[in-house]
């Protein structure tokens, strides 16, 4: 398997690795994938009062392309509104990282991770405002 320079760069210097406070109402957590498939991504976003993503963190169990896809996504979602973040398509991730066809599923997973994190945030917000 040969990797593109961008995959190698994200793999060797992953951006925004870590955890945010899962319990905080302004944090959304998305965990997608399964160990059986060889990839699990956890993406966390902290959303400001203005609805803009202020911070993103990830941890990923998976191949280099999965790590690079999630690292890239943390950079891309930062500074975007939730709607703008949801507009990120896996094809853009795959293109940016020059993923080969067998690794496209890594970009699909990264897109899923954004959706899951946003959905978790919205659910929390709905629960908070309901009180």
């Amino acid at each position: 398997m040969t990797y593109s320079d961008k995959v190698l760069d994200h793999y060797e210097r992953p951006r925004n690795v870590g955890n945010l406070d899962t319990a905080a109402p302004e944090v959304g957590t998305g965990m997608v994938g399964a160990p059986a498939c060889g990839d699990v991504m956890r993406l966390q976003i902290r959303v400001g009062a203005d609805g803009v993503i202020e911070e993103a963190r990830f941890k990923t169990y998976g191949c280099g392309s999965a790590i690079a896809s999630s690292s890239l996504v943390t950079e891309w979602v930062k500074g975007r509104t939730l709607e703008q973040a949801l507009a990120i398509r896996n094809a853009e991730i795959a293109e940016e990282l020059a993923l080969p066809p067998v690794k496209v599923h890594c970009s699909v997973l990264a897109e899923d991770a954004i959706r899951a994190a946003v959905a978790d945030y919205r659910e929390k917000q709905a629960a908070t405002s309901a009180i």
Partner: peptide, 25 residues
């Protein structure tokens, strides 16, 4: 392992077999 969410869960004492995984790719 510092990058791995599974390692985090292991350190928190979570049994991975009890987790409902979100996607089957």
């Amino acid at each position: 392992r510092a990058l791995s969410p599974l390692w985090d869960m292991h350190l928190q004492g979570i049994d991975l077999n009890t987790v409902q995984w979100a996607a089957a790719h």
